[in-house]
């Protein structure tokens, strides 16, 4: 009687052990790919889409030396990244920069997407300290979308500010223009 329990338990254990072994092997082979997928999911899709439509991830720019150069020469520059789509094709540059002209509450921090052909693809606010309901409206798509499609080859002078929030709007614009000058100077 006892013998048969041992035999039954043994067979089950064997099946379980082999299954666990197969799974351990598969887990190991897929570990890196899975980690990469999860990391990509971390940058919010809304930000990715509004800055560079079609992108799924921002990777750090390949030429680290260039990034360091820009950092040392441009005080408001934060980071340069490359936007990639789901098939890992490079879509364009993503410049992260502060404004050069202070807004109501200080500097605003922006993502500016620029295509390889030198057009702005989209802008998104990373952080700001502007007045709620007034200057903060510079984060709204109704304001930011006006920059998409503009040439990144020259400073933008003509734009629609938010009524009653001129200072914040100008600060916003200065950040976009800083990104443009970085593109002109280092990436064109």
């Amino acid at each position: 009687m006892k013998n048969s329990y041992v035999r039954l338990g043994g067979i089950l254990f064997l099946i379980a052990a082999i299954s666990a072994g197969v799974l351990a092997f598969l887990n190991d082979s897929t570990k890196d790919l899975i980690a990469k997928n999860e990391a990509m999911a971390a940058t919010s899709p809304e930000v990715l889409e509004s800055v560079m439509p079609g992108s799924v991830m921002f990777n750090d720019y390949a030429d680290a030396a260039l990034v360091e150069t820009i950092k040392s020469e441009n005080g408001k520059f934060v980071n340069l990244q490359t936007a990639v789509d789901a098939s890992n094709n490079e879509l364009g540059y993503v410049v992260r920069t502060f404004s050069t002209v202070a807004g109501y509450g200080g500097d605003m921090e922006l993502f500016v997407g620029i295509s390889p052909e030198g057009k702005i693809t989209g802008v998104n606010v990373v952080s700001h300290s502007e007045t709620s309901g007034l200057g903060s409206r510079t984060t709204e798509p109704s304001f930011t979308s006006q920059f998409a499609g503009k040439d990144a080859t020259a400073e933008i002078t003509d734009f629609d500010a938010i009524t009653g929030a001129t200072k914040s709007s100008k600060s916003f614009l200065s950040a976009v223009n800083n990104a443009i000058s970085i593109y002109d100077q280092y990436l064109k």
């Binding site: 197969v22 899975i34 997928n37």
Partner: peptide, 18 residues
């Protein structure tokens, strides 16, 4: 149950990755 669970996990891992 063990075998079915193993295959479910295999499919889960493959989908998670690919």
């Amino acid at each position: 149950v063990i075998i079915i669970a193993a295959f479910t996990t295999i499919v889960d891992l493959l989908m998670h990755a690919y």
